[in-house]
């Protein structure tokens, strides 16, 4: 597995972490948590979207490089 493939795997897991973090914060907010939880939730979703956009751009940039 090349660095390109490992990087994509890493970005995918980071996206997953952002979503989990966001879901946890949203859950805390629905339980009566502070507005800060909502900020965390929105930030988590924002970073997940940002990472997906980055991942797609990265794949396009290195499309000629092998995954092996």
């Amino acid at each position: 597995m090349s660095l390109k493939a490992f990087h994509i795997l890493f970005i995918a897991l980071s996206v997953l972490l952002s979503i989990v973090l966001s879901a946890l914060a949203l859950y805390q907010f629905t339980l009566g948590g502070s507005g800060l939880n909502l900020v965390w939730a929105v930030t988590g979703i924002g970073s997940a979207i940002g990472l997906i956009v980055y991942g797609v751009r990265f794949l396009r940039k290195l499309r000629d490089v092998s995954f092996l």
């Binding site: 490992f6 990087h7 890493f10 897991l13 972490l17 973090l21 946890l24």
Partner: peptide
């Protein structure tokens, strides 16, 4: 070196939710 560095980062991606959250 990048593969090693990504592995170290990946460990943190697991450590962070497991220990802190």
């Amino acid at each position: 070196a990048g593969l090693y560095w990504h592995f170290v980062d990946l460990v943190w991606i697991f450590l962070f939710p497991v220990l802190y959250l």
